[in-house]
């Protein structure tokens, strides 16, 4: 009866020295290579034109106002809010000036700033994916067709397909895996090691890859109508329920130091 009977396969210890160790070393080295490659491939940020910078920074100031409104008094906040609303209505803060208001969204493919953003993203993804596919191909070429070790824990049968890729038998326990599974294990497990060697800001860890997917939204936003964004900020400013950090500060302070007076 197959199944509950413990399947024992005796393996040559030399397997470890010739397979596991080389794969591990290659993984570590490619991780480091990926990190340095992505650092070198980073383009220097381009200088911005004066008006574009002005537009962006006024927007940032409006956002600061919403976040930090508590630092200034209600009257001061209202004064700034009205100033901003007036300026947005006139349209003088926009890059194209008050006349360019009706231009609308620029075409994503023709806007040069967007192209740079997309190139940067694609480069990042290439650096991630190319080494991975290369290594998978190398492993499949050299190390396939046999099981190499037994996992200490069981997995569902679906994994058999992936982890026992080249093996001919069908009844083999899922715990016996081929070298491809060692590749996957190291892919996930070496991240802390990368953190150790390269410092925590490295480009080799998986998490960074996932965050790049999230940042996809960012360069796309540049194409939207700046006018609408400004109008949205004016509305956000209107909605703010102002509270003042100095309100009750003396009571808080006295409560904090009550013991030491």
């Amino acid at each position: 009866m197959a199944g509950p009977i413990e399947q024992q396969i005796h393996r040559d210890p030399a397997l470890f020295y010739w397979i596991l160790l080389p794969i591990t070393v290659v993984m570590i080295l490619t991780g480091i290579l990926r990190h340095y490659l992505s650092t070198l491939l980073q383009t220097t940020p381009k200088k911005q034109a004066l008006l574009k910078m002005r537009e962006q920074r006024h927007l940032m100031r409006a956002r600061n106002m919403i976040i930090n409104h508590a630092q200034i008094s209600k009257a001061a906040f209202n004064k700034r809010k009205e100033w901003f609303a007036d300026k947005v209505k006139e349209g003088t803060l926009l890059e194209s000036g008050p006349d360019g208001k009706a231009k609308g969204k620029p075409n994503p493919l023709s806007d040069p700033a967007m192209m740079d953003g997309m190139m940067g993203m694609m480069k990042g993804q290439m650096v991630m994916m190319v080494p991975q596919s290369l290594i998978m191909g190398w492993i499949n070429a050299f190390f396939s067709g046999y099981v190499i070790m037994k996992l200490p824990f069981p997995l569902t049968p679906q994994f058999k397909q992936m982890l026992q890729a080249g093996v001919g038998t069908r009844d083999l326990d899922v715990r016996w895996v081929s070298s491809l599974s060692w590749y996957f294990l190291t892919l996930f497990g070496l991240q802390p090691v990368y953190n150790f060697i390269l410092g925590s800001n490295n480009a080799a860890s998986q998490v960074a890859q996932q965050m790049q997917m999230q940042q996809q939204g960012n360069p796309m936003a540049g194409a939207e109508d700046m006018e609408k964004i400004f109008a949205a900020e004016v509305e956000n400013l209107e909605v703010v329920e102002h509270w003042y950090v100095l309100d009750g500060v003396e009571d808080r302070l006295l409560a904090k130091f009550a013991s030491s007076i």
């Binding site: 190499i148 070790m149 037994k150 200490p152 824990f153 294990l185 497990g189």
Partner: peptide, 16 residues
Amino acid sequence: MSFVLTWTLFYGLVKA
């Protein structure tokens, strides 16, 4: 992840 990595490695080393 680190645990599983070293666990698998040494389990294989020891068992063989």
